[in-house]
């Protein structure tokens, strides 16, 4: 099976290389794998995720995602790569002046799908995350758990190759968290999507086999 993500001697830093966060990391992730990333606060979990969607360029080493080396990627290629990613944030990052339905189909809008397709897909996705009756509401009219389901639906909208999630359940109670985990397991299992989740607590009820990386003192280690 092919690697969706491959890092070799990956070094990540801020402030023009002065503030090193991750040093010489080596790891590969295959298609359809589910990966948890944990580590102390400030260890660089979000930083690693940022590098994976091209928000932070590697200082040294190589980082290949979906066959593209992010070390020297062009803006246009990066934009295209991002259209194959579903990204989920702890603070949801929904567009508050758009309806729930419009938020969900943002990836389809970017890909240039017709409004008819967007409408039908919005209905399908919102049904999938059990938010059908909230389609015409605005994000701030929803609870945190509901907003994050909108975030998950948006991430799934275009059947992404990889889902990157940064503490997706960080602001949610156990019940809402389990709904989110369920949706992500589902995507991994049914659609063979690669899923990387940063979390401080691996869910106790999780039925899929998964890999677990820990980030600590600038290193990325796998726990077996």
């Amino acid at each position: 099976m092919s690697n969706v993500i491959h890092a070799s001697n990956l070094t990540l830093s801020y402030d023009n290389g002065e503030k090193q966060i991750i040093k010489d990391a080596n790891f590969s992730i295959k298609k359809g794998e589910f990966v948890f990333i944990t580590g102390p606060s400030g260890s660089g979990k979000s930083t690693l995720l940022k590098s994976l969607y091209g928000q932070l360029k590697p200082t040294e080493g190589d980082l290949v995602v979906g066959g593209l080396n992010l070390t020297n990627i062009r803006q246009r290629k990066l934009q295209e790569l991002r259209t194959h990613m579903g990204i989920i944030f702890q603070d949801y990052k929904l567009v508050n002046e758009w309806t729930v339905a419009k938020n969900v189909v943002l990836p389809l809008m970017i890909a240039g799908y017709s409004t008819e397709i967007q409408d039908t897909q919005a209905r399908r996705l919102l049904k999938h995350v059990k938010l059908s009756e909230h389609a015409d509401k605005y994000p701030l009219e929803l609870s945190g758990g509901e907003q994050q389901r909108v975030g998950v639906a948006r991430a799934l909208a275009k059947n992404p190759v990889v889902i990157l999630a940064d503490e997706p359940t960080g602001n949610l109670d156990d019940y809402s968290s389990n709904v989110i985990w369920d949706l992500m397991e589902n995507a991994c299992q049914q659609l063979d999507t690669t899923v990387l989740v940063v979390t401080h607590k691996i869910p106790t009820i999780f039925s899929l086999p998964y890999r677990h990386f820990i980030i600590e003192s600038k290193g990325v280690y796998e726990v077996h």
Partner: peptide, 10 residues
């Protein structure tokens, strides 16, 4: 905010 979210999704 909106422009940033749109940027993240390519």
């Amino acid at each position: 905010e909106r422009m940033r979210v749109m940027e993240i999704f390519g």
